[in-house]
């Protein structure tokens, strides 16, 4: 948060940009693209993000006269503020579903351990297929959102290879995470193998925008279960705030490091 001037004309014009983007994005609305048995769901938030990037002064020089680096920094602070009413709305979907949530309690708690699945999938690919070095440890140990980034920064420093790994996945996740989370859950749902409650509660594993995209896709696929999907996803997201950092600190990061030392002893 900048120390002053957030109500100056330049800073206020940021909201005008956002308002214009939001109106266009919502006017386009949800688009479903059928692909075989599933349908990829394109959500207004994806267009909003894409339009934001298109108007970003690093892409379109002309907007740089208004969107100065200071204003951009303020836009970063506004993400946190703008997502808060969304978080509140999500909370209000949890209360009415409290019985279903208690019933699914064990699954809700245990699926937090399932977040270690990133190591199962991404570690072998990074080490054995892509032959990556120590970046692997930072890159694959978690979904690499802000708390996880801070953990690696503290332990290795962001200028270490591990730091480069965590920053690479962080930046990539920021750019394409919303899109990935709009697509993957819908495809997994289309296999018909899993309980909708399991698909819903797993939406809470990442950032707020990943949560929004994931639940948006599932609700479009199963509108009749909307309340259940939102309630479970919201509960799981609250749980991730509480447990995510600790699972990373005491389990995921030490485990990934140990695996990497076993796999590539030559690099230590």
């Amino acid at each position: 948060m900048p120390t002053s001037g957030v109500f100056e004309p330049r800073h206020l014009s940021l909201h005008v940009f956002v308002l214009a983007i939001v109106i266009v994005a919502e006017a386009i609305g949800i688009i479903r693209i059928p692909i075989g048995i599933a349908a990829i769901v394109l959500l207004p938030m994806l267009y909003a993000f894409a339009m934001g990037i298109a108007l970003n002064p690093n892409i379109t020089r002309a907007t740089g006269r208004v969107l100065t680096p200071n204003v951009q920094k303020f836009a970063g602070a506004m993400i946190t503020i703008a997502i808060t009413p969304f978080v509140a709305k999500f909370g209000t979907t949890v209360g009415p579903q409290i019985d279903a949530i208690i019933e699914a309690g064990p699954a809700l708690i245990l699926q937090e351990i399932g977040n270690l699945g990133t190591i199962v999938v991404a570690f072998p690919i990074a080490v054995y297929v892509l032959r990556m070095g120590r970046e692997t440890v930072g890159a694959v140990y978690s979904i690499d959102r802000e708390p996880n980034l801070a953990l690696v920064a503290e332990k290795y420093g962001l200028d270490s290879p591990e730091g480069a790994g965590v920053m690479g996945v962080y930046a990539t996740g920021t750019l394409i995470g919303t899109f990935i989370f709009a697509v993957i859950p819908v495809l997994v749902h289309a296999t018909g193998l899993f309980d909708i409650r399991a698909l819903a509660m797993s939406c809470g594993v990442g950032s707020g925008s990943m949560l929004a995209a994931c639940t948006g896709g599932l609700v479009t696929a199963e509108p009749e279960n909307k309340d259940l999907i939102l309630g479970l996803a919201g509960a799981s997201n609250v749980l991730t705030y509480a447990t995510g950092l600790y699972v990373g600190m005491f389990v995921a990061l030490p485990l990934t490091q140990w695996l990497f030392r076993k796999a590539r002893p030559d690099l230590y």
């Binding site: 919502e26 938030m45 909003a48 970003n56 951009q72 970063g76 506004m78 997502i83 969304f86 920021t174």
Partner: peptide
Amino acid sequence: FLSLATPALAYGGLALS
């Protein structure tokens, strides 16, 4: 709920440094 996430992502796209 989806409409409330849209502004945050607009800010997000504009904020990328």
